[in-house]
Design a binder for these strands. Structure first.
Length: 589
RNA sequence: GCGCCCAUAGCUCAGCUGGAUAGAGCAACGGUUUUCUAAACCGUCGGUCUCAGGUUCGAAUCCUGAUGGGCGUACCA
């Protein structure tokens, strides 16, 4: 649309003798209820024209119709100049830009970005909150790829610490040697089971101590179980053979379980980091900060940074005993990642309860003079809430990821059966279809919402399969594939170009033409929701077209060819957009 | 206390750097299938955009304040 802007700038210069920039003009799509394709808001120009908005719009419209070949006509309503572009213009857009093999992705921009997501703790299985994280991270990575970035997907596994020691202690004490094999439990669930047992027994001990007259605080500190866990953590740090062996064994179970869940979710990683390897790093950065005077040491030996000038607080970066805190590690891993990849951007997909942490982290790196800190971004997302409130692992109110996936598949099967859709499909295709549709519904449900907003999930109400949903879009795709097959469409067939298009066809072309702009917007905002809402509009519009125009029984061969091509391009764009959301589309459903 | 985020239809959400009468889906009600897949299409119903000021020709959008909700403010991660 740059040519219209440019002509409008010329018009203002010629008619009103004023130089304006193209940015000062706003072009928008004409609203449905008015005639036209593109609208220029003329209010801002009245101060140059010294005329009322209607007159200003009219002279501008006349100038543009005469000067710009593509503009067919115009009308002015209040301060809005609506321009209608010629059919031939839109047809040209279709053949020249939309109907091209690489439409819907950008060539390499030579830049590298790391997206860190998932980053689970190894003491319990994944739940719905993790699912949102995984889907967001994967999707953002795909969106950036489509925008021309080279992407490294990273997973920083929190495999050490007091939490895993809790599971280990509980397993040793109450496990009787139970293994995933002996129990038939998935490894992560088995370990999670002992995490819950630890908490239960721990609470019992606290109660007992309180009955003996200790305060809540004392009891929490003095309960034998927590002491044992702390001792175990120390032994782990000292490299105690027995503890390390147990730790390795249980972590292996968890990894096997996670792998399974990741596979079902369809997410993957190029690079794993383990905190057991990185938890000591960052201390050298603390040294450096002290030397540079960015940090200061208190009398007890602890190291701090004063961020009060920035409106934040004083923040501890190293404990008095010289051990790391969370942010120490993160300083180290940020540096480690940069040293390894020299990425232009690095994104951390982490929940919004850590907003403050990342604010501080990035600020510290900037103060230390890391130029690459400018490219760091915390993709913060809201919690997933249940109608009853927040999910709590220990209270058993979490929605387990594996259970949820299984339920989604079951619902997909139920829906498919009710509609009698896949009755003649081979068994394998059926199973695959249930998975694709079930995951499509779930993923779309989670991704269509702006990341920073919190999300409400009601386990008692199944995720919809109709309307603004993943399956609706998948269905649209399958339907197109079906028409293309019936029409014997081949992507390399050459068709005679059409001379004219109908209103819906034009709308479809306009919608398709905007795909790259939405792609860019999604990347700038790190927002899969932008893609999700775009592809929904596209699918909706296609269904309207499908309903209004006959494709295979078009009045002319030329028109049939065009409609097939239009359908093909729509299908490709839907597929590409859905891929960016990590959602598969079935060939039939 | 201080800081950050959120508030749009009964419910779940869109609404781009301010622009026309604020849009979808679900739910409710009605219609469309001898025609390319009805997980679809079309229509009806539904709004003081939390409230109060301000900026502007124009505010759901920007600014200030208030209210309600969430999160953070650990020598936890």
């Amino acid at each position: 649309m740059d040519f219209i802007l440019e002509a409008a700038v010329r018009a203002v210069k010629t008619l009103f003798a004023t130089d304006i920039s193209a940015e000062s003009l706003s072009l928008q799509q004409t609203r449905k209820e008015f005639e036209g394709d593109i609208t220029i808001v003329v209010f801002p120009l009245t101060k140059f024209s010294q005329k009322p908005p209607e007159q200003t719009g009219t002279v501008l419209g006349e100038f543009l119709v005469n000067e710009v070949e593509a503009i067919e006509s115009f009308n002015v309503i209040k301060g809005f100049l609506n321009l209608s572009l010629k059919n031939s213009y839109w047809i040209n857009v279709f053949y020249q830009t939309i109907n091209q093999p690489d439409f819907g992705s950008f060539p390499s921009n030579g830049k590298k970005v790391m997206v860190e997501y998932s980053s689970p703790n190894t003491n319990k299985p994944l739940h719905l909150g993790h699912v949102r994280n995984n889907l967001l991270g994967y999707s953002v990575a795909e969106i950036l790829k489509a925008n021309g970035y080279e992407v490294i997907k990273a997973n920083l596994v929190n495999d050490r610490g007091i939490h895993i020691c809790k599971s280990m202690i509980a397993w040793e004490k109450f496990g009787n040697g139970e293994t995933p094999e002996s129990s038939g439990l998935k490894g992560d669930h088995l370990v999670g089971k002992y995490y819950v047992i630890f908490d239960k027994e721990y609470k019992k001990q606290i109660e007992a101590l309180k009955n003996q007259g200790e305060t809540e605080e004392q009891a929490k500190k003095n309960a034998p179980l927590i002491k044992e866990a702390q001792e175990m953590l120390q032994k782990w740090e000292q490299g105690d053979e027995h503890v390390i062996a147990l730790w390795k064994k249980m972590n292996c179970w968890v990894y096997a379980g996670f792998e399974e869940t990741y596979k079902k979710l369809g997410v993957d990683f190029d690079q794993y980091y383990y905190e057991s390897n990185t938890y000591l790093s960052g201390k050298d950065i603390v040294e450096e900060g002290l030397e540079k005077g960015v940090f200061f040491k208190k009398a007890d030996g602890s190291v701090w940074i004063d961020l009060t000038a920035e409106g934040l607080d004083e923040k501890l970066v190293l404990r008095a005993d010289g051990t790391s805190v969370y942010i120490t590690q993160d300083l180290g891993t940020a540096q480690l990642k940069y040293n390894q990849y020299h990425a232009d951007k690095a994104i951390n997909v982490v929940g919004n309860e850590q907003d403050y942490h990342f604010k501080v982290l990035f600020l510290i790196l900037k103060k230390l003079g890391r130029s690459w800190a400018e490219g760091l971004y915390h993709l913060s997302y809201g919690m997933v809430d249940l109608p009853s409130g927040k999910m709590k692992s220990r209270e058993g109110t979490v929605v387990d990821a594996d259970d949820l996936i299984a339920e989604m598949e079951a619902t997909a099967k139920g829906q498919t059966d009710i509609l009698g859709k896949a009755t003649d499909f081979p068994e394998e295709e059926k199973q695959n279809l249930y998975h694709i549709i079930g995951m499509g519904a779930l993923k779309y449900f989670l991704l269509k919402v702006e990341p920073k907003k919190r999300l409400l999930f009601d386990p008692n109400e199944s995720v919809d399969f109709q309307g603004h949903t993943g399956p609706f879009i998948q269905y649209t795709y399958a339907r197109i594939r079906s028409v293309l097959n019936k029409g014997g469409f081949k992507s390399d067939t050459v068709f005679m170009p059409v001379k004219t298009v109908s209103a819906v066809e034009k709308d479809l072309i306009i919608q398709l033409e905007q795909f790259p702009a939405f792609l860019t917007e999604a990347a700038i905002n790190y927002s899969p929701a932008v893609i999700a809402n775009y592809v929904y509009e596209l699918a909706k519009l296609y269904n309207k077209f499908y309903h209004e125009e006959s494709i295979l029984k078009a009045e002319e061969e030329m028109v049939k060819g065009f409609r097939l091509q239009l359908s093909y391009v729509a299908a490709n764009s839907i597929k590409k957009a859905m891929q960016m959301l990590g959602i598969e589309v079935p060939e039939r459903m």
